[in-house]
């Protein structure tokens, strides 16, 4: 979808900081300055990736609190694409939210969003900003309602299904969260990280299920299936093998039931052995080169291996 914001690794604060420091050099680039129509005919063809980068720098500046640079970036993007562009409206909303000092400010921004959505119900970025703002000011129930309504109109929006799944999971409604993640997987059947996520959701559901061993087993079996699919789609996928080991461990520790759709204990044992072997291999192979979040993952994997004494 054209309105999606292109991804950059923002999770890591250090990355955000490095990115925000590029602001001044990027803003002084001549290719991103405003040109008259005559000049733009003879000058070099503009690179879409430069604008995408400017957008990322804008987000990083907002995050690191460099509001002045963020404002300059936003102005530059707005002059190029126009203030009525949906994506630009979303970015402007984001800027206002970041700038808001009081509850009153936030409420005013929310009213602005409501107004825009009422006038133009096809404005997807503002729909999403509105949901995010409602969720951020601590009204998860309203955010749920908002998202469900949005998905009734835009059922092919994978990102929204994932957000809904996350929101349900946060509210402790595991079954609903699993349903939403399954819907997202229908739209992106090759997404290995979503398969792993669905496996995790099933695993969580099995840990909190109160309905007895049969339901537990059902969830865990599903989790094993999903983790297995994720490692099938992505070789040496640490997250997938981690989940596979956890789920197979738990499933084989359950008392044997007579249900026919469960996995054979021999299959489980082999899956578990494979997962352990693969985890050891991955930890050994990449622990010397890893850094940042990846390093933390490897440490967790090592801890899991140590814990089970294998």
């Amino acid at each position: 979808m054209s309105t999606q914001i292109q991804y950059y690794n923002h999770d890591d604060p250090a990355t955000a900081m490095n990115l925000s420091q590029k602001a001044s050099s990027l803003l002084s680039k001549s290719s991103l300055k405003r040109k008259s129509q005559v000049v733009s005919i003879v000058s070099a063809i503009e690179e879409p990736s430069e604008w995408a980068e400017l957008e990322q720098v804008f987000l990083a500046c907002l995050r690191t609190g460099d509001d002045e640079s963020a404002h300059l970036c936003l102005e530059r993007i707005t002059t190029r694409f126009g203030a009525a562009n949906h994506r630009i409206m979303g970015l402007r909303g984001l800027y206002q939210e970041a700038e808001a000092k009081t509850e009153e400010d936030l409420r005013r921004i929310l009213q602005g969003y409501n107004q825009i959505v009422k006038e133009d119900p096809m404005n997807i970025p503002i729909h999403k900003r509105r949901t995010a703002l409602i969720r951020s000011i601590g009204m998860p129930g309203d955010a749920l309602e908002c998202l469900v309504q949005f998905l009734a109109s835009f059922p092919s929006d994978t990102e929204a299904w994932c957000e809904l799944s996350d929101l349900y999971q946060q509210q402790g409604l595991n079954q609903q969260a699993i349903f939403c993640m399954e819907e997202a997987l229908l739209l992106a059947p090759n997404a290995w990280n979503l398969h792993a996520r669905l496996g995790e959701l099933n695993y969580l559901a099995s840990q909190s299920a109160q309905e007895g061993i049969a339901t537990n087993e059902k969830y865990l079996t599903e989790a094993v299936h999903r983790f297995a699919r994720s490692v099938e789609l992505c070789q040496d996928y640490l997250r997938g093998y981690y989940g596979l080991k956890l789920a197979t461990d738990k499933l084989s520790s359950l008392p044997q039931s007579k249900s026919t759709n469960g996995l054979a204990s021999e299959t489980l044992r082999r899956l578990n052995t494979t997962a352990v072997a693969k985890l050891k291999h991955i930890v050994k192979q990449s622990s010397s080169t890893a850094s940042g979040p990846r390093k933390a993952e490897l440490i967790a994997a090592q801890a899991l291996l140590d814990q089970s004494g294998s």
Binding site: Y7, R63, T131, R135, E163, N190
Partner: peptide, 24 residues
């Protein structure tokens, strides 16, 4: 497919700002 898990369009910028200030 990473954006489906990070969901940049649903970014909670105020929480991210707090988190960054904390980290800094």
């Amino acid at each position: 497919f990473r954006l489906f898990e990070d969901r940049p369009n649903y970014l909670d910028i105020r929480a991210k700002r707090r988190e960054f200030a904390e980290w800094a």
